[in-house]
Design a protein around this nucleic acid. Structure first.
Lengths: 157, 157
DNA sequence: CGTGAAAGGGTTCACTC
DNA sequence: GAGTGAACCCTTTCACG
């Protein structure tokens, strides 16, 4: 979909405040509420906006640990990858999972409450995933940046 | 902050739909609108809810590439870390950055439009960050999981 | 925490340019 | 595509039980 500068301004505003009302949004981007509502409709239906989410403090939920897990499988056959991915999707502690190029096949971000919780997750989920031959866990000491999205260049919006 | 099962239900509902109205939320969790509004106020002011954000398709913005970058610095002195972090925060393409235990000091998730864009980011931002002695980039072939948050156990809510 | 009411906004039309 | 105006619906915020 083609995005003009008003669309980008709408996206930037809703990235910053996803609960902004349509009328406030309209004012922020310099449109009437009806025109703004029509634009927003397009952005949502075209999939440009994938959803709206409250960002909940992991800390408040008791998830104080973040692990980065590198995983290698025994081969890169379609069937192997598919079976692994179906299984990993069932683990609620896995927040992010990418299929990668390079030394490891997958990289995961895993949320755990504490070290004992991570040990459980490692045992019951990660090392029992199908086709896994190598797991390498490391732990985040501190979160330096965690943006909800790639930013929108203010020069374009 | 102590969270009871109604609080968790509110968080789960707003994770799923951050634009849900207060009255819809109240109905979803079985409260009156006024009581629900009071709870929500607490959750926001206590920092349990860190914000509301539209999730914008990186694809639609032209960011088709995701790189995972491992970085080592020349030492772990406070000053070294601080200077690195201040610099990395200025790069808009860095979506996530963790200070890590283990082989590398930092792990970054970087969004780029294409390989040429990544080359530019690598040259102008990453390799010119202060104190960097080792950079290892790998690229995501596919996004398997990308949840906005750690999920809330439905059994508790 | 729930109720109910008041006041103020928000959304969504049809219509016009 | 954009703006206007009006109808309708909803939200927020009280005081009170």
């Amino acid at each position: 979909m083609e995005l003009d500068s008003i669309d980008l301004a709408i996206l930037a505003a809703l990235q910053a405040d996803g609960r902004m009302s349509n009328s406030a949004l309209a004012e922020a981007v310099g449109l009437s509420p009806s025109a703004c509502s029509r634009r927003l409709d397009h952005l949502e239906k075209s999939g440009t906006i994938r959803g709206y989410h409250a960002r909940v403090s992991n800390q408040a939920l008791g998830y104080t640990m973040t692990a980065i897990v590198h995983i290698s499988l025994s081969g890169q056959f379609q069937k192997t990858l598919r079976e692994f991915e179906e299984a990993v999707k069932r683990c609620p502690n896995v927040i992010v999972c990418y299929l990668m190029s390079g030394e490891y096949d997958y990289i995961l971000r895993v949320a755990a409450k504490d070290l004992a919780d991570y040990e459980r997750i490692h045992r019951d989920w990660l090392s029992s995933l199908p086709h896994v031959v190598k797991i390498n866990s490391s732990f985040a000491l501190r979160e330096v940046i965690d943006r909800p999205n790639v930013g929108i260049d203010p020069a374009l919006a």
